[in-house]
Computed example of a mutant assay.
Amino acid sequence: MNKQVFALAVSTAVSAAFSTPASAQTSVTLYGVLDEGINYTNNAGRGHVYELASGYAQGSRWGLKGAEELGGGLKAIFQLENGFDVSSGRLNQGGRMFGRQAFVGLSAERYGVLTFGRQYDSVVDYLAQTTANGNWAGSLFSHPYDNDNTDNSFRLDNTVKYTSPSISGFQFGGTYSFSNDRNFGNNRAYSVGGQYAYGGLLVSAAYLQANNPGNGANGAITANDASFIAARMRVFGGGITYNFGPATAGFAYSKSSYLNPTGNGYLGITPLVPPGVLLNSLKYQNFELNGKYQISPMLFVGAQYVYTIENFDASSGGVKPKIHSFGLMADYNLSKRTDVYIQGEYQQVTGDSTYSILDEAFIPGAQAPSSTSKQVVVRAAIRHKF
Rank of each mutant, 00 (worst) to 15 (best):
M1G: 12
S19T: 11
G32T: 09
E36V: 07
E36C: 02
Y50D: 11
A57D: 05
S60G: 08
R61Y: 00
A67M: 11
L70E: 00
G73R: 12
A76W: 03
N82K: 05
F98C: 02
G99C: 05
R100L: 13
A102C: 08
S107E: 14
R110D: 12
G112Y: 04
S122W: 02
D125V: 08
Y126D: 02
L127K: 00
A128P: 13
G134I: 01
W136P: 00
L140G: 01
N149R: 11
R155H: 06
P165A: 10
S166H: 07
S168Y: 15
F170S: 09
N180I: 03
F184W: 10
S191Q: 11
A197E: 12
A205L: 04
N211F: 15
A217S: 15
N224R: 06
N224T: 08
N224M: 03
A226R: 11
R232I: 02
M233E: 09
Y242I: 09
P246I: 05
Y253V: 03
Y253P: 00
N264P: 01
Y284N: 01
E288G: 15
N290K: 15
I295C: 10
P297D: 07
L299Q: 02
Q304F: 02
S316M: 11
K320D: 15
I323T: 12
H324F: 09
M329T: 12
M329F: 08
D331P: 05
N333K: 13
T338N: 06
T338G: 06
V340K: 02
Q343A: 13
E345D: 12
T350K: 14
Y355S: 12
L358C: 02
P364C: 05
G365Y: 01
K374L: 04
A381M: 10
H384G: 09
F386Q: 05
